[in-house]
């Protein structure tokens, strides 16, 4: 094991904002003792539990699967529970809320606009054929076609790292496109045409300028930009690799 037990001190700088007390956001600093196993989430919670209980953040699973604690960590989007302090080079750790969504309090942003974009791409299987009495068949290759986009946990790390989204929050954003991709390329789905239509809109995929921020921000290692490119290509060629009318 390469874990270290060594204890050291770290300065945690947090961008704070409490609508009931503050006119505008401001930075606050805390000294925290950390060890080699600590996640950024642990460091923040040490402050919340043992120094300042008023600090606001969301978290639940603490191991990168629920998508609650997306934030900007030393200027880069990530899940606080998936970044280990031992992997941070400096002894200063800064955290601030993700960009592009309204801040409610401290590290907590309003996720509603994000989920509204997600819902707008019809993120559910569309197939009105009467199902067989057992499972629908799907070959391992057909299943593999959309595997990557099934991993999404809707954390918003990608969308809130996207410069076009910062510029205009009407853009559906990479997360919504990933979730459209999840269904467009599923051999059991019959809704590709409708979804491609939605994404062909002024607020759709063409907003993406292929900056790759989203891909490097994704804590689930989803090839976000590639998924977007595949959707664009399907739109231009009309080809999704199978015939949805059969």
């Amino acid at each position: 094991m390469t874990t270290t037990d060594s204890v050291r001190n770290l300065t945690l700088k947090i961008k704070r904002y409490d609508p009931e007390r503050d006119e505008k956001p401001h930075w606050e600093e805390y000294e925290v003792e950390v060890d080699g196993h600590d996640r950024v989430l642990d460091v923040i919670q040490k402050v919340k539990w043992y120094q300042d209980e008023t600090l606001g953040l969301r978290r639940s699973c603490a191991h990168g699967v629920c998508g609650s604690d997306a934030m900007r960590i030393n200027g880069i989007n990530g899940l606080a529970c998936k970044v280990l302090v031992k992997n941070l080079q400096s002894s200063l750790l800064t955290v601030e809320p993700i960009l592009g969504l309204p801040v409610i309090k401290d590290l907590i942003v309003d996720m509603k606009p994000f989920f509204d974009h997600y819902k707008s791409v019809m993120p559910f299987l569309i197939n009105d054929d009467p199902p067989p009495t057992t499972e629908r068949l799907q070959s391992p290759a057909e299943r593999a076609r959309f595997d990557d986009s099934t991993k999404c946990i809707l954390c918003a790390c990608c969308t809130t790292a996207c410069p076009p989204f910062w510029g205009d929050q009407k853009y559906v954003g990479p997360a919504a496109i990933v979730n459209a991709h999840r269904f467009i390329f599923d051999s059991r789905d019959r809704g590709a045409a409708e979804r491609l239509d939605i994404l062909n809109d002024a607020q759709g995929v063409w907003r993406c300028r292929t900056v790759f921020n989203c891909t490097s921000a994704c804590p689930r290692d989803i090839k976000v930009t590639q998924a977007i490119q595949e959707v664009k290509r399907a739109m231009l060629t009309g080809d999704i690799g199978f015939d949805p009318s059969t």
Binding site: L125, P131, T134, E135, L137, P140, R143, D186, R188
Partner: peptide
């Protein structure tokens, strides 16, 4: 229940012959 989940779209891994 498993078949119902599959019909809802759950992407189970597949056997060589396309079953769950």
């Amino acid at each position: 229940c498993i078949y119902e989940l599959e019909h809802m779209g759950l992407p189970f891994d597949r056997t060589a012959d396309g079953r769950i």
